[in-house]
Design a protein around this nucleic acid. Structure first.
Length: 426
RNA sequence: GGAGCAGUGGCCGAGCGGCUGAUGGCGACGGUCUUGAAAACCGUUUUACCCUUUGGGUAACGGGGGUUCGAAUCCCUCCUGCUCCGCCA
C-alpha cells in the first residue's frame, strides 16, 4: 500500500507506475473519494467537538434550559450521524482502490511488457553439451522409477505427481541442503502455518488480485499460501518492533499451493508448473532505508546464487522488467537455471524488494531511535530452493549415457552417501 | 462442540456512567548527587489523524454494534486466551 499523501502530491508518478506494471487502477477516482473523506472527517470532527463541549454543560443545567440544550444536542447528533454514514459509504471504496495502487519501481528496472523484455545481468556455469541423446526429466523419472506423474494425475488431477524412492530422497535432500545453508548464514529456521487468514494475504499483497490463484478453504475462511513469504513476512504483523531486533532474517520450509488458473495448456509437461511443491524461502525484515534494503536484496540474491553454485547448476540472473513485477515489488531479480529439455533458462528463484509496501499493509513498524517515531519496516524475500522444479535441471544435467543420474556432491550426505541413481534392475 | 472465567498503556495492575488517555508499581529515558557506579530524589515515557504560531482538537481501554446528553465502566455480538466436559488424528 502506498501512503495516500504521496499519491495526493504526485498522482502522475503512480499512474505511470500502473501503466508500466500493467495494472488497472483508477487513481483519479481514488483522489476524489479521498477528498470526500477528508472533507467529511473535518466536518464530523468539528461537530464532535461542539457536541463534547455542549454535553459537558448538561449536568449543571436544569428545567427548560436543560431541555433546550438537549434538543440542540440531538440536532447536532443527527448531523454527525449523517456525516458518519457518508464516511462509511466512502471508506470501503477508498480501501479497495488504495490497495490496488502499484508501487513505482527503481529507476534501473527495465520498462517492458513481459519476460522477453527483462534484462540479463550475468551468467554463471557452463551449459552442458551432450555426446549422447539426453532424456528429459520425465523420461528419466520414469526409467529410474523416481517420479510418477501418471498416478499423481489419476489421484489428484492435472499438475500433480508422486516422488518415489531416490526421487523423494533427492527432493528432501536438496531442501535440507538449502535449509542448512541458510541456517549457516544466520537465518532463523522456521516451520510455519500455510493456512492463512485474509489479513495475511492482503498484508503481503496477494489480495486483492491473486484470489483466483489461491486455494480457498471457504468453510473456515482460510487460504492455502502459495509461498512461505506469507507467514514469514506477516509473522510480526501489527507489531511495533524494537530497533535492535532488526534485521529479522528467516528461512522456512513449506509446502506451496498454487491453482495456476489461467495457465491451462501452459507448461503442462513434467514437473515445471505444478499445483503443489515444497520450497525453502528466505525473508528479511529491515529498517526503513533504501540503502539497507538494497544491501539485503543483494544478500538474498547472493545466498541463492551460492546454492546454485554449490549444486553446480548453470544459471543466469535477470533484472525483471516492469510488466512482470507484482503490484508491490520495487525491483525483482530472477534466477533462471538452464533446463535442457526446455532448451532455455527458466525461472527457479525470484528475489523481490518491497520497501515499505507490505509493511504498511500489515502495519508492521519499529521504533526508530533517532527520530523516536514508529516507522514502517522494509521487507524482502527470495527463493532459496523450490523442489521439484529444481530437480528438472538436476536430473537432466547430471544424467549419464547409461541412463543413470549422478547425485550432486553436496546432496550426497543427504542420501546416505550415495553417488548415483541407477535404473531399476528388472 | 458444550459450560464457566477473562481481555486496560512496553509489562504488571487499578478504575466499573461525567472531574480517567486513564491512579499506582515495574521497566526505559533525561537530570540532581558522585572520582565513577549503585542508592536516593526530580522529571519524561501510547498511537493515528486534523487545524495550527506557541498551541488546540478528534479518535482509540480485544473488534464491531447498541443504550445514554455523556461509556474503559451498562447491553448485544464476534474474536482471542484460560479452566472444566465431550470428541478425535
Amino acid at each position: 500500500m502506498i501512503d495516500i499523501k504521496q499519491i495526493r502530491e504526485n498522482p502522475e508518478k503512480f499512474k505511470k507506475a500502473a501503466r508500466d506494471k500493467r495494472f488497472d487502477v483508477d487513481i483519479d477516482r481514488l483522489l476524489t473519494v479521498d477528498a470526500g473523506i477528508q472533507e467529511n472527517k473535518k466536518q464530523l470532527q468539528d461537530i464532535t467537538t461542539e457536541i463534547n463541549k455542549v454535553g459537558k454543560s448538561v449536568p449543571k443545567l436544569a428545567g427548560d434550559q436543560k431541555q433546550k440544550v438537549l434538543a440542540e444536542l440531538s440536532k447536532l447528533k443527527q448531523k454527525a450521524s449523517a456525516l458518519d454514514e457518508k464516511l462509511k459509504e466512502l471508506q470501503p471504496e477508498f480501501d479497495l482502490l488504495s490497495l490496488q495502487v502499484p508501487q513505482p519501481t527503481d529507476d534501473d528496472v527495465p520498462v517492458g511488457k513481459d519476460d522477453s523484455e527483462s534484462v540479463e545481468i550475468r551468467k554463471d556455469g557452463k551449459v552442458r553439451q551432450f555426446d549422447f541423446e539426453p532424456k528429459d526429466h520425465v523420461q528419466l523419472g520414469a526409467a529410474l522409477d523416481i517420479i510418477d506423474i501418471e498416478r499423481g494425475v489419476r489421484l489428484a488431477g492435472t499438475r500433480n505427481y508422486f516422488l518415489k524412492g531416490d526421487g523423494a530422497l533427492l527432493h528432501w535432500g536438496v531442501l535440507r541442503f538449502a535449509m542448512d545453508f541458510m541456517v549457516g548464514k544466520g537465518y532463523v529456521p522456521m516451520s510455519v502455518p500455510v493456512l492463512m487468514k485474509d489479513e495475511a494475504m492482503t498484508g503481503t499483497g496477494f489480495f486483492p488480485g491473486s484470489e483466483d490463484q489461491t486455494y480457498r478453504m471457504e468453510a473456515d475462511q482460510l487460504n492455502l499460501a502459495g509461498t512461505a513469504e506469507v507467514p514469514l513476512t506477516a509473522f510480526r504483523m501489527g507489531e511495533i518492533l524494537k530497533a535492535d531486533e532488526l534485521p529479522l532474517k528467516f528461512a522456512a520450509m513449506s509446502t506451496c499451493f498454487r491453482r495456476e488458473a489461467g495457465a491451462a495448456g501452459k507448461d503442462t509437461y513434467g514437473l515445471y508448473r505444478i499445483h503443489q511443491f515444497d520450497k525453502i524461502e528466505q525473508v528479511v525484515i529491515c529498517e526503513n532505508s533504501v540503502e539497507v534494503s538494497n544491501k539485503f536484496h543483494e544478500e538474498i540474491l547472493a545466498n541463492s546464487e551460492a546454492v546454485m553454485k554449490a549444486l553446480e547448476l548453470p544459471y543466469r540472473v535477470v533484472n525483471v522488467c516492469t510488466g512482470d513485477l507484482g503490484r508491490g515489488q520495487v525491483k525483482k531479480y530472477d534466477i533462471e537455471a538452464w533446463m535442457p529439455s526446455r532448451k532455455n533458462y527458466c525461472e527457479t528463484h525470484s528475489a523481490s524488494k518491497f520497501y515499505e509496501f507490505q509493511a504498511r499493509r500489515m502495519d508492521l513498524r519499529y521504533k526508530d531511535p533517532a527520530s523516536k517515531k514508529n516507522l514502517f519496516c522494509h521487507t524482502l524475500n527470495n527463493t532459496v530452493v523450490a523442489s521439484p522444479r529444481i530437480l528438472i535441471p538436476i536430473l537432466e544435467l547430471y544424467q549419464n549415457a547409461d541412463g543413470s543420474v549422478t547425485i550432486p556432491k553436496v546432496l550426497r550426505p543427504y542420501m546416505g552417501g550415495k553417488e548415483k541413481i541407477t535404473p531399476r534392475q528388472d
